[in-house]
Amino acid sequence: MDILTQQLINGLVLGSVYALVALGYTMVYGILELINFAHGEITMMGAMVALAVIGALVGAGVDLPGVVIALFGLLAAIPVCMALGFAIERVAYRPLRHAPRLAPLITAIGMSIVLQNVAMLIWGRQYISFPPILPQGRHQLLGATITDVQIAILCTSVILMAALVTLVKRTRLGRAMRATAQAPQIAGLMGVNVNTIISLTFVLGSALAAVAGFMVSAYYGLAHYYMGFMLGLKAFSAAVLGGIGNLAGAMLGGLLLGVIESLGAGYIGDLTGGFLGSHYQDVFAFFVLILVLVLRPSGLLGERVVERA
């Protein structure tokens, strides 16, 4: 087995999940300059809803191929998360659009606590396991192992990211989003319905989060009401690493963070002669993040250096 190839595959799959979640952070930030701390919890909700539906279908003995059942779960999770994203923006962020910068940050944290506890009330404190309905095929690639689920995650992420970029760069809606991000007032004067665009941004980001949450639970085989916190944190770091507000940056940042974590955990021990081990994986990741930001204060692909207070 080729260790390096395997670590790269591990990292890329993990990274593509980070990237999907990071897109949600970066889209909202690009338009509102707001860290939507509750985004990780939307991902969690996506995973929980999908699992609830899948669990119900499997429990009812529905005789369908596993992939189809899983897709039903995903299709149920997406609209729920979209509605959730829409509602969160209306309730917690819109009234604070002209408030001091940190006020929406606190409502976001409050929202994230609320969502966690609502999920705990609905689905309980236990870990929820993903039923073994997906194909478990394993393939050899350049001396390393890759599974069907991993391939599916990579492909889905790439397709979704490509679709999002096309949407933003090529369509009318995308143009309106970019205009709103650059200057909301002017965009409004030019006939863009700013409120609708902002809502749409949240809805789109939440849909991506639903997919990411579903993929995480399918990949690791479990979901828990607390899972959104770490995932959100990592994805947010990825978005900043790539340059927050920049779509390509979020993708690059996500993939990079995944690979850095993988290589860090895999190689720190050997590189430092056992002095530092895989417990410094996160230190390594944060260190790279700090180094990048110190050298390029606005992230890898971020353009704006000037702060807009």
């Binding site: 260790i3 670590q7 591990n10 993990l14 993988s262 860090g264 190689y267 081990g277 994986q281």
Partner: peptide, 22 residues
């Protein structure tokens, strides 16, 4: 032969398992 570490919040152990496998 190996002592690797993770956290009580982790779900991804592929990296450390890969290096343990070696």
């Amino acid at each position: 032969v190996a002592h690797e570490f993770t956290s009580d919040r982790s779900t991804d152990f592929l990296a450390i398992l890969t290096s343990i496998k070696a």
